[in-house]
Amino acid sequence: MERFIDAAPGVRLWTEGRGATDASPLLLIMGAQAPGLGWPDELVDMLTSRHRVIRYDHRDTGRSTWTFDQRPYPLSQLAEDALTVLDGLDIERAHIVGMSLGGMLTQLLIADHPNRLLSATLIGTSALSAVPYVQPDGTPIPPEELPGIAPRLLEMWSRPVEDLGLEAELERRVEHWRILGGHQLPFDAEYARALELKVIEHTGHYATSTAHARADASNLNRTEQLAQTTVPTLVISAPAEPVFPPPHPHHLAQAIQGARIIEIPGMGHALPREVHTPLAAAILDHTKR
């Protein structure tokens, strides 16, 4: 069921719920510039075996209101929007799964609103913590010295997005997914194209927003709160991750008190068919605990 929820005067958020309405709620938070349809239908449907699954469009994505140029907001506002979605659906507490920027927003919720979470699952993200990563041999590495984004991806992100028509935009997005997917699983260009075409049809246009890249990203450090949390947290480790490569997931698991970590073989910074079954199994096992 689709619904729009008012987040602020003149700002509406598109939401969709799947699964039994009386099942335990699970909120999916997608990454930067990505609407809720970035969570593939097949994966969402797997999670409905136990949950009422909610996905939604961030501000400046999909069918939600695009207003950043008129009314800029900090990235932390997107975490508050997640709470607005829960409030609008009369959900007091939920399991929350966040990917990429969504994983950072989930950490803000763990730190600032732990009473609203039943559990948290973090995918393809980095720790909002200044705690060093301690290697197996005991050597500490400051967070700023952990491996960075793959050069090929940085080069693509540095190029301005030009409006060369729908087909050219689809080709650009498919190539983006090829790089994000990493190098360990076969890449299905037709699957990526179909996903992006669905996103474009859902949005109503193929413009690319840069709002989240321009939003104020200061004051996100939550070192102490994450180190003291009691929210059950699962960290997904993706060995082919090009944005936050290992050992970022292990650093996350060290920074968040009590966090568990599980690796999804071959996974990168994407959600191709090959990872749906093991990823859903890991999430469902975690929420069942």
Rank of each mutant, 00 (worst) to 15 (best):
R214S: 03
D112K: 09
V161N: 09
P25A: 14
P35V: 01
L153S: 08
H51M: 11
G36K: 00
H251L: 10
Q77S: 02
P25Q: 15
P239C: 07
I96W: 07
D81R: 02
P249H: 08
L26E: 07
Q228N: 14
T125R: 03
R50Q: 13
L153W: 05
P136H: 10
Q254F: 01
I141D: 02
A217I: 09
L122C: 02
E144M: 15
P72G: 11
R260L: 07
A280V: 02
A120Q: 02
R3A: 08
Q135N: 15
Q257M: 14
F187Q: 04
T65V: 04
D137G: 12
P9H: 12
T233S: 03
L37F: 02
D69A: 13
A127C: 04
E92W: 15
I264D: 04
E169M: 15
A23Q: 13
E171S: 12
I261H: 04
S100H: 00
P25D: 13
I236D: 00
I5K: 03
L284K: 00
A192F: 11
M104P: 01
Q33M: 14
G36M: 08
L75S: 02
T233E: 05
L284I: 02
F244R: 00
P265C: 09
D163R: 08
E80T: 09
I54Q: 06
G181L: 06
P247F: 01
H251Q: 13
Q107Y: 00
D41W: 00
H205L: 13
E162C: 03
R214Y: 02
T287V: 12
A94Q: 11
A259R: 01
T208C: 09
A270R: 03
I256G: 05
